[in-house]
Amino acid sequence: MPILEDVKEYVQRATGMGRPGKKEAARLARPRKPHKVRFKDDGLIPNHPRWPFVIYRGAVEPADGHDPAVVMEDLFEANGWGETWRDGIYDYVHYHSRIHEVLGIARGKGRVRFGGNKGRIFTLKAGDVAILPAGTGHQCLSADDDFLVVGAYPPAGTYDECTTVEDRPRALKTIPKVPVPRKDPVYGADGPLVKLWKKPK
């Protein structure tokens, strides 16, 4: 599926076909209250020492004629979250120690464990958006055949992938230093994430 989605994305970007544009994408975001969860360091997965993992349920409902993956890409990019990709979620526990991540569910549903092996399992469905502060463990346990995720990252930070206990010493230093994003990937500068993830005093 990733290769097919890569081709589709290339064509959609080249032609503008099915793309709502950044202003219209913002109008397709439905107001939702954030569901917040704090995960503790479990000895392997650090999670974030201050900021919660956030889910917006059913936040994105694409209008007729728009590919939901395109809507999420345009929405995230409109709010400064870029380097978008389309794929699933890895089936092994991993986290990013130098960048935050947003995961928008474009199609299907999947059972995803966040927070590491001692974390919590969520069923994510089309339209849901999950926002992971740096350090948050995540792993797909099962998914529909058509499960499609759109991922993106804020401009400040560097992508990395941590999976082992050897990654921890560096990760424990870098995770708290990843800066607060300027905008919520779904709701922009006035979105809930900006208030939930505050700069340390």
Rank of each mutant, 00 (worst) to 15 (best):
Leu4Ile: 15
Glu5Gln: 14
Glu5Leu: 15
Asp6Met: 14
Asp6Gly: 11
Val11Gly: 09
Ala14His: 05
Thr15Asp: 11
Thr15Lys: 12
Gly16Pro: 10
Arg19Asn: 06
Pro20Gln: 05
Lys23Gln: 09
Ala25Met: 08
Ala26Asp: 07
Arg27Leu: 15
Arg30His: 04
Arg30Glu: 01
Arg30Thr: 03
Arg32Asp: 00
Lys33Phe: 08
Pro34Met: 08
Phe39Ile: 15
Asp41Phe: 10
Asp42Cys: 12
Gly43Ala: 08
Leu44Tyr: 05
Pro46Ile: 14
Asn47Lys: 06
Arg50Ile: 14
Trp51His: 15
Trp51Glu: 06
Pro52Asp: 03
Val54Asn: 01
Ile55Glu: 00
Gly58Cys: 10
Ala59Ile: 07
Glu61Phe: 08
Ala63Thr: 07
Gly65Met: 10
Ala69Glu: 04
Val71Ser: 02
Asp74Glu: 06
Asp74His: 06
Phe76Arg: 04
Phe76Trp: 08
Glu77Phe: 12
Ala78Val: 13
Gly80Met: 13
Trp81Thr: 06
Gly82Ala: 14
Glu83Cys: 09
Trp85Asp: 13
Asp87Arg: 11
Gly88Met: 10
Ile89Lys: 02
Tyr90Arg: 13
Tyr90Ala: 14
Tyr92Glu: 10
Val93Arg: 11
His94Ser: 09
His94Met: 13
His94Phe: 14
His96Phe: 12
Arg98Glu: 11
Ile99Phe: 07
Ile99Arg: 08
His100Met: 13
Glu101Pro: 05
Leu103Thr: 02
Ile105Tyr: 00
Arg107Phe: 09
Gly108Glu: 04
Arg111Val: 12
Arg113Pro: 05
Gly115Phe: 09
Gly116Glu: 03
Gly116Ala: 09
Asn117Ala: 15
Lys118Asn: 07
Lys118Ser: 03
Lys118Thr: 08
Gly119Gln: 03
Arg120Val: 15
Ile121Asn: 02
Leu124Tyr: 03
Ala126Tyr: 01
Asp128Tyr: 06
Val129Ser: 00
Val129Gln: 00
Val129Leu: 03
Ile131Arg: 01
Leu132His: 03
Gly135Arg: 02
Thr136Met: 08
Gly137Gln: 04
His138Cys: 09
His138Leu: 14
Gln139Phe: 04
Gln139Glu: 10
Cys140Ile: 12
Asp145Arg: 14
Asp145Phe: 11
Leu148Phe: 02
Leu148Ala: 02
Val149Pro: 01
Gly151His: 02
Ala152Tyr: 05
Pro154Ala: 01
Ala156Ile: 15
Gly157Ile: 07
Tyr159Pro: 12
Glu161Pro: 09
Thr164Cys: 10
Thr164Leu: 15
Val165Ser: 09
Glu166Val: 14
Arg168Trp: 10
Pro169Asp: 03
Pro169Lys: 04
Arg170Met: 12
Ala171Cys: 12
Leu172Thr: 04
Leu172Glu: 04
Leu172Pro: 02
Thr174Asp: 02
Pro176Phe: 05
Pro179Arg: 13
Val180His: 02
Pro181Trp: 12
Asp184Ser: 08
Asp184Leu: 08
Val186Gly: 00
Val186Glu: 01
Tyr187Ser: 00
Tyr187Glu: 00
Asp190Gln: 13
Pro192Glu: 10
Pro192Ser: 11
Leu193Gly: 01
Val194Asp: 01
Leu196Gly: 00
Leu196Val: 07
Trp197Lys: 01
Trp197His: 03
Trp197Ile: 02
Lys198Met: 08
Lys199Glu: 13
Pro200Val: 07
